[in-house]
C-alpha cells in the first residue's frame, strides 16, 4: 500500500465497514482535536471509545475512558492514534494483539515500520489523515464550510437518518 496518497474508495470502504473506534491518546480537554473527532464520529453513529492511561474511568466526550486497548473487553475495529509517530509503533503492536482491523494514524502521525507490521498481520492502515475530515470530504459535508472535498459526483447524496443537515457516505444508486 502506498501511504502517500489513498484512493477515496479505500478510505470510504474503511469508514463504511467499521463501527467501533478506539481513540488512543484521547485528551480530556474539549479544545483538542481528539475531542472534535470523537464528537463528530459519535454523531455519525460510530461507537467511540476514548483510551488514555492517565484518564481511566473519567468521562470524555460523553464516554468513559478506558486506560488501555487491552482493557476495552469488546471487539474494536479501528484504532485511531492521537500519539506521536514513535509512540504509534507500540500502539500498533497492542492493536494487533486485541484483533483490531484497521490502524488509523492522525494528521502528522506516520510510522512506516508500524504500518508494515500491521499490514503483515492483515490489518488495513491509514496514516497522516483525520477520520472526521475524510468523512466530511467523502460525504460532501465539508464543502458546506468551503473546504475543497476533491471529489466530483453527479449523483444525489443521501441524507443521514437524523435530519436535513446530515449526510452519509452513500449516494443514491
Amino acid at each position: 500500500m502506498n501511504h502517500d496518497t489513498y484512493p477515496d474508495a479505500y478510505i470510504r470502504d474503511i469508514l463504511l465497514k467499521h463501527a467501533v473506534f478506539a481513540v488512543v491518546g484521547a485528551s480530556a480537554k474539549t479544545t483538542r482535536p481528539s475531542y472534535y473527532v470523537m464528537k463528530y464520529l459519535a454523531a455519525k453513529g460510530y461507537d467511540v471509545i476514548p483510551v488514555s492511561p492517565g484518564l481511566g474511568g473519567r468521562t470524555v466526550a460523553d464516554r468513559v475512558v478506558v486506560p488501555s486497548l487491552a482493557e476495552i473487553g469488546r471487539p474494536v475495529d479501528v484504532v485511531d492514534i492521537f500519539r506521536n509517530s514513535d509512540a504509534a509503533f507500540a500502539v500498533t503492536e497492542e492493536a494487533i494483539r486485541i484483533g483490531a482491523k484497521v490502524i488509523w494514524m492522525q494528521i502528522g502521525v506516520r510510522n512506516d515500520a508500524a504500518a508494515r507490521l500491521a499490514e503483515e498481520a492483515g490489518l488495513k492502515v491509514v496514516m497522516n489523515r483525520c477520520p472526521k475530515i475524510e468523512y466530511g470530504r467523502l460525504s460532501g459535508e465539508i464543502g458546506w464550510t468551503g473546504v475543497n472535498s476533491r471529489t466530483l459526483s453527479s449523483r444525489r447524496p443521501l441524507l443521514g437518518p437524523k435530519g436535513g443537515q446530515q449526510r452519509t457516505l452513500r449516494d443514491e444508486t
Partner: peptide, 21 residues
C-alpha cells in the same frame, strides 16, 4: 437561517464540532 436537527446538533454547530449551516 437553517433549522437545527436537535439541540445537540445546534450545540455541535456553534462549537465548530460538526459541519453545517
Amino acid at each position: 437561517s437553517y433549522v437545527f436537527d436537535d439541540a445537540d446538533h445546534a450545540a455541535a454547530l456553534f462549537n465548530l464540532e460538526t459541519f453545517g449551516n
